[in-house]
Write a protein that binds this DNA or RNA. Sequence first.
RNA 1: GAUCCCAUCGUCUAGUUAGGCCUAGGACAGCGGGUUUUCAUCUCGCCAACACGGGUUCAAAUCCCGUUGGGAUCACCA
Length: 472
Amino acid sequence: MTPLRLRFAPSPTGNLHIGGARTALFNWLLSRHSGGQFVIRVEDTDVERSKRVFEDAILHELRWLGLDWDEGPDVGGPHAPYRQTERLDRYNIVIQQLLAAGKAYRCTCAEDRLDALRAEQESAKAARRGYDGRCRDLRHGPDAGPHVIRLRVPEGETIVDDLVKGPVHFANADIEDFVIARAGEGGRIGMPMYNFVVTADDVDMGITHVLRGDEHLINTPKQLLIYAAMGAAPPRFGHMPLILALDGSKMSKRNGETSVGAYRDLGIHPEAMVCYLARLGWSCGDQELFTIAELTTLFTTQGIGSSPSKWDMEKLTWVNGQWMRSLPADVIGTRARGFFAARGWAEHPREAALVACLRERTRTLVELADAARVFFADDYPKDDAVMAATLPAARETLLGVTEVLDGCADWSEASLEAAVHGWCEAKGIKLGKVAQPVRVALCGQKVGPGLYQTLHVLGREVALARLRAACA
RNA sequence: GAUCCCAUCGUCUAGUUAGGCCUAGGACAGCGGGUUUUCAUCUCGCCAACACGGGUUCAAAUCCCGUUGGGAUCACCA
């Protein structure tokens, strides 16, 4: 297929949200699938709310997810700059052209008049709302005083031939002459607005396809009108269903974490995040688990669904659990280390073995770290009731096992297993009768990793000390 | 209110473009059994859906219309 050019255009007004992450992922996937390019463009025309720290954070999260880009604010590219506030000269040229061609006009209507107009339309329950076109044919010049620039919306119909929804029709009569540039200081033209800069940039940057959230579908006819006014060919648009909270409401902090960083802190692997995000609103038959490489080859817009999906933490956790078991040991190890360090734990002498036995029985890195406490510190959670019910009754057994273990020179899993098994056979005791009390003595819990793994990771000193304490 | 989008198990979804292969498949969660020194894994099974009403057709989850329900947007935010 022909190489496509796609972009992700975040506004640096906050951290990367899961909805934005999915948008970025889908655009990236389509660009890679087609052998094309992926561009990052920063939409910072809201100078009040835009902050460079957010831009940095967003780029960082994107990299964490495993995405890369061919052009962007930090790597440059043939269409630089990639921050909209650095592209003002270009916007100005286009606006002058639109003005000269009569495709746009200066509007001097004051904000309070507009507010009053809105209030009036509201109370009159007017079917048609929006700017009334007062300045439309007044032909204000550059020195007309404070003014915004509005697009002259022609009569007719604008059709969005959507990649996922098919053709969607909008009557131009329903679209007001919207503002494409704010009023600036001293009667000059101010900061251009979203729908305009997006369009101007997508034209300049040769964007061929745009995948974005459903909330933008209603913006698309406006942008199409700008393409037409500029005399430029529009890209193909595809609007993906929104991600809602589990209860069907809009995603918000109220019903779960919304930022990508929060999930990383929860111990979610980027591979799992990508996999889960991809399956939210996109599918490929019955397959549930994908690597990012598989997604790259399988992804097409045809797999994108049309109805909104709900964020299900349970399923994300399950997906993450699958990755806990399949990621390379060193990757899990490195990531787990970060969570151990956050808990103030120094490196463990048998950390690889520790991680190896815990990754199999946990679903997130946080669960892994919580379960690891028993190996790192003495303040691990103990079930007093279980200890009281188990330990005294098994004192003889524990004493015997402790002696056997103490005589065990080789503290490897295999050696430990052989010693305990041998002792059980000699004594005619079932392993189950031994394993549980020992586990409770070592971990203060009935549940945990395999007995020999536990002993090995704990190490001779600690294991024997806990066993003796349990007998006392 | 207006414009637009959407509608299959509790959730993610397959099936809808080209109507019969669907007494609707898979996965998560839930429930029950098995495996395991415990837990987890793994495994077997169960529960569970075409929103409703009209059409079109020999045949509709699939096409059409309506209803209802959900959502998005209506800024000198993006």
